[in-house]
């Protein structure tokens, strides 16, 4: 059992991800924007973060930069509508510790596979 932090501004998506993660026997914690996430993350100490791209408020790059500043070694999977190239993935992995990404609307089995692989 691991602790998964779900960060998304859309409540239905948060709830859906929560259901899927609970089905996988994980413990979950939610945040609905970047500020809330940054405020909770240190005490929550999640094993994995499912981080939405394009939330209102703090931009993803800003969130990632602040995490890097605080030297929080978190495993992150981005949940996004954007496709990344291999080079972009490499940059995201080496510079921001992004382990993987999944595009919306995602496939449940695919999400489960990727989460298992990262954990």
């Amino acid at each position: 059992m691991s602790k998964i932090m779900i960060v998304d501004d859309n409540r239905d998506i948060v709830e859906t991800l929560k259901t899927i993660m609970e089905m996988e026997n994980h413990q979950t914690e939610e945040a609905y924007n970047g500020e809330e996430f940054l405020g909770k993350v240190e005490s929550a100490r999640p094993d994995l973060v499912l981080l939405d791209v394009m939330m209102p408020g703090l931009k993803t790059k800003e969130i990632l930069a602040r995490l890097k500043e605080r030297k929080l070694d978190l495993k992150i999977i981005l949940v996004t509508v954007v496709r990344f190239s291999d080079q972009e993935k490499r940059i995201l992995m080496t510079d921001f510790n992004i382990r993987d990404y999944i595009t919306k609307p995602f496939d449940v089995p695919e999400l489960i596979t990727r989460v298992r692989a990262v954990l």
Partner: peptide, 12 residues
């Protein structure tokens, strides 16, 4: 965005 929970919930 709205397609995301639709698809995931349906799949489940």
């Amino acid at each position: 965005t709205p397609l995301t929970p639709i698809k995931a919930q349906l799949q489940m």
